[in-house]
Design a protein around this nucleic acid. Structure first.
Lengths: 160, 160
DNA sequence: TCCTACTTTTACGTTGACGTCAAAGACCGT
DNA sequence: ACGGTCTTTGACGTCAACGTAAAAGTAGGA
C-alpha cells in the first residue's frame, strides 16, 4: 500500500547499497550518512531493513557531489538546494494532477523562483570572482614568459 | 642586523596581532594557526616575543581567503600556491640583483610557469563547470516563470 | 606606578564529513 | 541447506580548521 511496494521483489532495476556505492565511487558509509542528513533516501526497504535504490539515486549522488565539490557547499547547504528542487518537482506533478490549492501552489512557486534567483546571483558572483583571479594568473603567466625570454636572450648574447 | 630590526621600535606602520585580526575579521587564533602552517608569518618580533606585522599581512590574508573560500582550496593547497608566488617574487628580485646562478633561475622560472599553467587549467575547468551549472539553473528559472504565468492566466480565465 | 587590556604558549574541546571496526542477521549461488 | 558475501545498526576514531580556557608575562595610558 505504501510506496515501499511499488517495486517488485526481484526487480533488476533496484540497487543494493553496495551497488550504488560501486556505481558512484562513494562508500556505503557515506550513503548512510547522507541519508541521515536527509540528502538521499532509498526508494524502498525490504522486510529485513535492507535499503533499495533506483538508478535515480546515482544521478542524485552526482548532483550532490556537484554542489559539494564544485561549488564548495556544505552538506547543509546542499540540502537546501536539493529540497528546493524536490519541492519544484512536487509542484510540477501537483500541477499536472491538479491536487493542491492554486493559492498555495502559486506561493510555493514564487518562493522557489526567488530561491533560484538567489542561487543564480551567488553563482554569477562566484564565476566573476574566479574569472578575475584567472585573469590575474594569466597576466602573471605572461610576465613570467617575458622574463624567461629576456633571460634566454641575455644568455644567447653573452654566449657568442 | 637581522630582518627583525628593519622596523623602528615605535613604528606606526607595524601591527599587533589583534589589529591584524580586527582588520581582517579573523581571530588571533587563526592567525597563529596559519603561521604554524607556514601561510603567514609576522614580519618581525619584539624582545618579548610579540608578533609584529606590516599592512602587507592584511593583503596576504585576503589572498589566502580568496584561495580558500572562493576556490575551495585546503590550507595545504593554498600554501602551494603562495609558496610559488613567493618563489616568483624571489626570482624577480634576484633577477634585478643578479644574484643567483642563471641556470637555477631559469629552471625555477620554468617550474613556476608550469605550476601557473596547471592552476590556470584548473581555474578554467572550474569556471566552465560552474557556468554549465549556472545555465542549468537559469533554464529552471525560465521554466518556473512560465509555469507561474500559466497559473496566473488560468486563474484570470476562471475568475471572470 | 598601577591597572586594564593585550599577547604568549600550552593544551584540550568542537564541528563536519566521513572511516573503521564489531556483532548480528540476511542474500544468494551451488 | 550451506557458506561466503553483503547489509544492518551502533559506536568509536580521524582529520582539518579552528574555538576556548588557563596561566603567565607585557604594553601603554591615567
Amino acid at each position: 500500500m505504501s510506496a515501499e511496494n511499488l517495486i517488485a521483489p526481484g526487480d533488476t532495476s533496484t540497487l543494493r547499497i553496495g551497488e550504488v556505492a560501486k556505481a558512484t565511487g562513494l562508500t556505503t558509509r557515506t550513503l548512510r550518512y547522507w541519508e541521515q542528513l536527509g540528502l538521499l533516501s532509498p526508494d524502498s526497504h525490504r522486510e529485513s531493513g535492507e535499503r533499495l535504490y533506483t538508478s535515480g539515486a546515482i544521478e542524485r549522488v552526482g548532483r550532490i557531489r556537484e554542489l559539494q565539490d564544485l561549488l564548495g557547499f556544505s552538506l547543509a547547504e546542499v540540502k537546501v538546494v536539493l529540497d528546493a528542487e524536490d519541492d519544484l518537482d512536487r509542484v510540477r506533478s501537483d500541477y499536472r494532477a491538479n491536487k493542491t490549492d492554486p493559492r498555495r501552489r502559486r506561493a510555493l512557486l514564487v518562493d522557489l523562483i526567488a530561491a533560484n534567483d538567489t542561487l543564480l546571483e551567488r553563482l554569477d558572483d562566484t564565476v566573476g570572482r574566479i574569472q578575475a583571479f584567472r585573469d590575474e594568473r594569466a597576466a602573471t603567466g605572461k610576465r613570467m614568459r617575458k622574463t624567461l625570454r629576456e633571460l634566454d636572450a641575455e644568455h644567447s648574447a653573452t654566449s657568442r
